[in-house]
Design a binder for these strands. Structure first.
Length: 568
RNA sequence: GCGCCUGUAGCUCAACAGGAUAGAGCAACAGCCUUCUAAGCUGUAGGUUGCAGGUUCGAGCCCUGCCAGGCGCGCCA
């Protein structure tokens, strides 16, 4: 319907502007007015034309209305305020759409993924395999997963991908930490250095490794070989834990991609060679960082990628002083690999502390593929964990940081997911453990789920009393005339647009706020109108209405990965 | 010092692509359960949208400058 209206207006505009060959008709964009008095749809097209045509917006709106050919469903269109065109539809036309919603069911609002759908790679979480995920990772995980679902729902072919940083010095630290604990468990006296990972999980891994391997033969091994063995097994153990924790909030990846595999297969060095042959690499020195005190700064000649030619601030090193590739070098190889795997679009979800990294990766991809803004990066801001309003002290060094798993176990997956999803990623998020645990109005997730459960309670009650909605075609929706009913209908019809907008802007939180507003409209309706009454016709119409509401709430929560209990 | 993000009601956040009277929840106050789930609803109060300029028919949103908070700033990832 919206499209039909927009087309009608667009056609009218073209006609009007025939006398102005140099004028370009603005794209018609209809909105749903906040206030019912402003009709079902509103268009502001007359306003931007005011200057161009040297007429008042009201006059222009009038000339548009004079030529426009509306679809049958339009009952009235008038000019209001500073030049809005407000369109009113036959109430029954809107309500008829309830039937289509119920018929479509789970697929209402969704676009099917076709064979030629755009291939999107969505990389998120990518927490280091050196320890458990913390709450900040959890936010990125939830946001990434929901965004993947949103994109999938609008017809994109989405792959969820996790990049395992299983290379570099941190892995050596991990191997060393575990080995020290193994020695300790065997009764040796060890000194546990500051830089090592202190957590209890390290001891647990050490214990498991001692069960699998003969300690004495390990001590007899060459140190490098032992470190490699302990390291890779520790990574495997940590990844198993991470996957398990992710599964606990309903997140599964299509692919876990190993950084180490890029080094092992020679793809990183191949990539560096390729860049060299293209002349965007040189040997040079970087100026010392400004504003930050670097005590032992030494100017060193390094292999540098001329990212400044592609929009970055300074050139970036591809190799460390010892000649091994930097993380950056591997990451370029990784993103280039995604490109070669045929993804038309890449989206990365990173923590805000990686913000300074965006321009260099995009610069590298521009150099390699000529494409701008790839990957598209979502920077997720920090989570401040509180309990009863007081900050929860976290220290990674002391091993006292709160893990994502602990939070999920304490407050539940639904509460964690929904709370992480109700805010834009750009804003920092305060997450209070006590508030998230409460099953009351402080907790938006229950508010929405409660609406769904309540709808089901009513439908059960209706059936118990012998009411049958019957064939959709027989339901007379013209009796749904109250303010609350019309609001609900309008809201339901806005769902596909809301989903599309969330996808276009990579803002999954919109689906959450949509669900909350819909739930609010439903609760309001519930208190003013009875569904099950003596009036058979009205009862059937309202059963259809709330069934459609329940369906849309369910669809929205499905996208967000939040459960929809039938009873609460 | 430079770059990115943020600043909206006492608190946590919205405001759909620059549109109509800036909205919700919590907290406060006053009401609503012998009728489909009170994990809910209705009402009252609460605002110089950090500050100052600018752009235009119109600015919370765009531009400039300040102020405040967060993140980052070579060979960690």
């Amino acid at each position: 319907m919206k499209q039909a209206l927009e087309q009608a207006l667009q056609a009218a505009l073209e006609e009007l502007l025939q006398d102005h060959p140099d004028a370009i008709a603005p794209e018609v964009h209809l909105t749903r007015p906040k206030m019912k008095e402003h009709g079902d749809y509103a268009a502001n097209v007359a306003m931007p034309l005011a200057r161009l045509l040297k007429k008042s917006p009201q006059q222009i709106a009038a000339s548009i209305l004079a030529v426009v050919q509306w679809p049958d469903a339009v009952v009235a269109a008038d000019i209001a305020g500073p030049g809005f065109i407000n369109i009113r539809l036959h109430q029954a036309t809107e309500a008829e759409a309830l039937k289509a919603i119920v018929l479509a069911g789970e697929s209402y609002g969704k676009i099917a993924v076709t064979a030629d759908a755009e291939k999107v790679n969505l990389e998120f979480v990518s927490a280091n395999p050196t320890g458990p995920m913390h709450v900040g990772h959890g936010r990125g995980a939830v946001v990434g997963d929901a965004l993947a679902s949103v994109l999938n729902a609008v017809g994109k072919n989405v792959q969820r991908e996790y990049y395992i940083n299983d290379a570099g010095v941190q892995i050596g630290v991990l191997a060393n930490s575990v080995w020290l604990r193994m020695q300790e468990l065997e009764g040796e006296t060890i000194e546990f250095p500051d830089g090592a990972y202190p957590g209890e999980y390290i001891v647990q891994i050490a214990r498991e490794l001692l069960e699998k391997h003969n300690y004495v033969s390990l001590t007899e091994m060459d140190e490098e070989a032992r470190s490699a063995l302990v390291g890779s097994e520790s990574i495997a153990a940590n990844m198993a834990m991470i996957r398990d924790d992710l599964a606990a909030i309903g997140i599964n990846f299509d692919l876990y991609f190993s950084e180490q595999s890029l080094h092992a297969s020679g793809r990183v060095s191949e990539l560096i060679e390729r860049l060299q042959s293209e002349g965007v690499v040189y040997s040079g020195t970087l100026p010392p960082p400004k504003g930050k005190e670097v005590e032992d700064y030494k100017s060193v000649e390094q292999l540098l990628f001329r990212t400044t030619d592609f929009g970055d601030d300074v050139d970036r090193p591809l190799a460390k002083q010892d000649g091994t590739p930097t993380y950056f070098a591997a990451d370029i190889a990784y993103h280039y690999d995604k490109h070669q795997r045929g993804f038309e679009r890449m989206i990365d979800v990173w923590g805000a502390d990686h913000g300074g990294y965006v321009s260099r990766v995009q610069a590298a991809m521009k150099a390699l593929t000529g494409r701008e803004r790839q990957p598209d990066v979502l920077l997720v801001q920090m989570v401040n964990l509180t309990r009863d309003g007081k900050p929860v002290k976290m220290s990674k060094r002391a091993g006292t940081f709160v893990t994502l798993r602990e939070v999920v176990d304490e407050v539940g997956a639904d509460a964690v997911r929904f709370n992480f999803m109700t805010r834009r990623v750009e804003s920092q998020l305060d997450f209070d453990l006590e508030a998230a645990k409460q099953k009351n109005d402080e907790n938006p997730v229950y508010y929405v789920q409660y609406a769904y459960a309540r709808i089901n309670a009513i439908l059960r009650k209706a059936e118990d009393e012998g009411h049958v909605m019957g064939e959709l075609g027989d339901v007379d929706v013209s009796v749904l005339t109250s303010h609350e009913e019309q609001r609900l209908v309008a809201h339901l019809l806005a769902y596909p647009d809301a989903l599309q907008k969330a996808a276009d802007r990579l803002e999954a939180y919109r689906v959450a706020t949509f669900a909350m507003r819909l739930a609010a409209d439903f609760h309001s309706f519930y208190h003013k109108n009875r569904v099950v009454t003596e009036d058979v016709v009205l009862t059937r119409a309202r059963m259809l209405l709330i069934k459609a509401v329940g369906q849309v709430i369910r669809n929205a929560l499905n996208v967000l990965g939040v459960s929809t209990p039938e009873r609460m």
